[in-house]
Write a protein that binds this DNA or RNA. Sequence first.
DNA 1: GGTGGCATATGATTCAAATCACACGCTGGG
DNA 2: CCCAGCGTGTGATTTGAATCATATGCCACC
Lengths: 258, 258
Amino acid sequence: MPIDWEQLRIEQPALGPIPVILRDAARIRVFKKGQLLYRRGQLPEAMLCVLSGEIRLVRHAPGGAEIVLQRSRSGFVAEASLDAQTYHCDVVAATDGRLLLFPRFAFQAALENEPVFNRAWINLLAREVRRLRAKGELLSLNSAAARILHYVEAEGSDGAIILNQTRKSWAAELGLTHEVLYRTLRQLRERGGITIEGERITLCAPRVPYDPDHPGEKDQSGWDPLPQMPGGGGASPAGGIDGPDQPRRPGRREQSGG
Amino acid sequence: MPIDWEQLRIEQPALGPIPVILRDAARIRVFKKGQLLYRRGQLPEAMLCVLSGEIRLVRHAPGGAEIVLQRSRSGFVAEASLDAQTYHCDVVAATDGRLLLFPRFAFQAALENEPVFNRAWINLLAREVRRLRAKGELLSLNSAAARILHYVEAEGSDGAIILNQTRKSWAAELGLTHEVLYRTLRQLRERGGITIEGERITLCAPRVPYDPDHPGEKDQSGWDPLPQMPGGGGASPAGGIDGPDQPRRPGRREQSGG
DNA sequence: GGTGGCATATGATTCAAATCACACGCTGGG
DNA sequence: CCCAGCGTGTGATTTGAATCATATGCCACC
């Protein structure tokens, strides 16, 4: 099956720097939901890039509970297996989909022989580190408002963002229910902390309303339009090695087997 | 000030592969709490490795709220600035401490001229991606018990782990308060889901107790010793692009300015 | 020995997100 | 046109973690 690299490059810009020699070695693999693609302990033979569907790296706890270590619906996954002797977990298909496989030896050779590709790979990894670190910070925030603020500031420009997804999927990205996202957006809007124009969300500086009828009076509403962000005092988000200023709140509903 | 590389290598194994030419170019910079080390928009001139203290990458929202994008108490930070034209945020010292600086041009040269270092850097980034992805999965879990299970399975071996930190700092790493960590550990222990021997924590398979006095009866406690892990049905942790099976619960206490 | 600081641990209360329930609008397919 | 599915949005209730409060033990320092 020939691979339409022009189309792939459009769907996944990260594939742009893949050199010709690696393209020629690549293969597409179709997978079905539930399929075990690679077993823990197995020698990795390919680098994996998800084209469609979802791939997960999982381990099984005693009793069979499934621990998801990574998941991807698009882009590379299990990057660390480039030089690993074995997979440290199972590679499982969570849905139907397609994988782009690069033989590992060819990937390694390309990193050695193609300086442009080498640098591009380093950049891709470094940017993923950056993205994941910001995400970890966001997920460590305790309130919905703080998360919204963090997201708009971090992902947008100049305190504004144009959303390119549904509110529901945005809520998921923020680790929130859609209900609390709607509520919090409304609260923030009503308090003047943000403005919403269609898909554009803009953070606003706190207003100190000047009422010409009552000069000298300040807004006594007792509530800033934007939440104060925690962490100023030295908070370490989850993963820190010292005490938390503001530890994370995980969910509820232990989903017991009872 | 000469740099004791033997000592550094012990403290930070990641510095092991740094080639001599880079070592010779490295400098130690002492920083004070509150110091602005690099300003957003500035051209990055060095790669940064935190030796002590804490460094943060921050942006400021309208109104002055500080958005933490990354933080590090040990190891590299702002890796993506290797090829960036500008810093996309401020680099700030959250505490007193020390930074190891590698001139960017020297770092780039070493990546080009030292194949062993090049490969080591790629590995370091890939492993950091792996670590951060697992952390994101953990932080997306809703319950304390699920987080504990995830951590032990992901960070330990064969369903067991020997903790090398205080319970308090472990709680922070899990994004929990220490109170809920203690409680949940006790619950899990009482239900036979885990065993705790000093610093060693082991996951146990669920028991179906066989009571010889009442053959045929099953445990009716209504509660599995280990929590069922969410996500089996296709959950996408925060950051996903589709709906959540189990969105994250951020904290409470908006820390309003009121 | 006394004191302070911090870790370990527990109980009571508070709190905001999750959950549950529902309404309405839009779109695609029959 | 009707229906199903999904997004947008809101209100009521439940829930488990966060917060608050406290006790005890350990260790370092004076």
